[in-house]
């Protein structure tokens, strides 16, 4: 009995730790053509309180974002801020501390974010692409939609029947990821 209890405790803790690993993000911004434009984008992003640190790569017009792990990371707000500066998101990559091995349609909580994994290949990666509707082309969205019947991919919220057991989270939003093949 005691052994079992320790085993359960260990199992609980190990799963707890594996889900609290942190992630950072690299966003690529389209339309940036000068240091002044990049600086404007950076200034706009700095207004978000869940971003702890921004490092710009001016040559590739991308920004590495380090997040505050205690907060919900709203990628829609990141998009809003980039567009406020007059530019567009080309893509968002999310880097986890270690390789994940999710199955198709797994929903997992990392820090305060719920992610839904859409897997159509056997790539084992620590880097994932955000594939929510507003971040990719209509054609890509349709093609990813084939791999999931979950309503949350369409609505972006987790109060759907597919992922309704996350009421304790700070936000109703769920973001969708696919493994990065690069």
């Amino acid at each position: 009995m005691k052994k079992q209890f320790i085993f359960i405790l260990f199992f609980l803790f190990s799963s707890f730790f594996s889900f609290s690993q942190s992630f950072n993000s690299v966003i690529t911004v389209n339309g940036l053509t000068c240091a002044m434009c990049s600086f404007s984008t950076q200034k706009s992003l700095e207004k978000l309180d869940f971003i702890k640190e921004i490092t710009a790569d001016l040559e590739s017009t991308s920004f590495k974002l380090v997040f505050d792990d205690s907060k919900f990371i709203d990628f829609d707000m990141i998009q809003d801020k980039v567009e406020d500066a007059g530019f567009f998101i080309g893509g968002i990559k999310i880097n986890f501390d270690e390789k994940l091995n999710p199955n198709n349609n797994d929903h997992k909580v990392y820090n305060n974010n719920l992610f839904h994994f859409i897997i159509n290949n056997d790539i084992n990666s620590s880097t994932y692409n955000l594939i929510d509707k507003n971040f990719i082309s209509d054609m890509d969205f349709k093609s990813f939609s084939q791999f999931t019947s979950h309503a949350c991919y369409l609505t972006g919220t987790h109060n759907e029947s597919c992922c309704s057991n996350h009421e304790n989270l700070k936000s109703k939003k769920v973001f969708h990821l696919e493994p990065d093949s690069e």
């Binding site: 389209n30 339309g31 530019f87 567009f88 080309g90």
Partner: peptide
């Protein structure tokens, strides 16, 4: 109207 691609708009 605004249409952007990398290093192009």
């Amino acid at each position: 109207l605004s249409s952007d691609r990398p290093k192009y708009h």
